[in-house]
């Protein structure tokens, strides 16, 4: 058997006679797989597989899940529609329409605030860019599913109602 096609070094190990007749090595390989098989049959509950919808993985607190918008004490969004997040967003998926806030100290508020969750790459840059901590990704929600593209574009009301305990 020639090894010209192989990268240098990969065939440098000289095979012993037993290895080169292949049969013994095949038997050893079979023994390895059988060991795994029997071990797993005897202890199904120790299998590392997670039965997903029933069991859920616990992620770290720093996990970036679906976004939420923070509220002021009166319940209005704390976002000032400065557009920093949408400017910084690498996926260009935040669309904000600003409107004038009745309180001159605040100046602006988002009339609409849409995030296209299909385009979002969950990089967290929006969170970092925000000057007033108005957008956060600490909900821990990673099960994001819908049956139409439109349903993935979530609006202000939706984002404001997100909680951190993963329920919504």
């Amino acid at each position: 058997m020639s090894f010209e096609g192989l990268p240098p070094g990969s065939a440098s190990k000289k095979r012993s006679f037993l290895e080169s007749i292949y049969v013994v090595e095949v038997a050893r390989g079979l023994a390895v797989t059988m060991r795994h098989l029997v071990g797993n049959i005897l202890r199904t509950d120790r299998m590392p597989t997670m039965q997903y919808p029933e069991e859920k993985r616990v992620y770290s607190d720093r996990f970036r899940g679906r976004h939420r918008l923070m509220k002021r004490e009166d319940g209005s969004p704390s976002c000032v529609a400065c557009q920093m997040c949408s400017t910084y967003c690498p996926a260009d998926c935040i669309t904000i329409v600003a409107a004038e806030h009745p309180d001159p100290a605040i100046e602006k508020y988002p009339a609409s605030f849409d995030i296209d969750l299909l385009r979002c790459v969950y990089c967290g840059l929006c969170e970092e860019a925000c000057p007033c901590d108005a957008i956060r990704m600490d909900t821990g929600i990673y099960e994001i599913a819908a049956d139409s593209r439109e349903a993935f574009v979530v609006g202000k009301e939706f984002l404001l109602n997100n909680t951190t305990d993963g329920t919504r």
């Binding site: 797989t33 795994h36 098989l37 797993n40 049959i41 199904t44 299998m47 590392p48 597989t49 039965q51």
Partner: peptide, 10 residues
Amino acid sequence: KGAAFIQDRT
């Protein structure tokens, strides 16, 4: 099933 158990899956 055999493939799965051999590869430590369920």
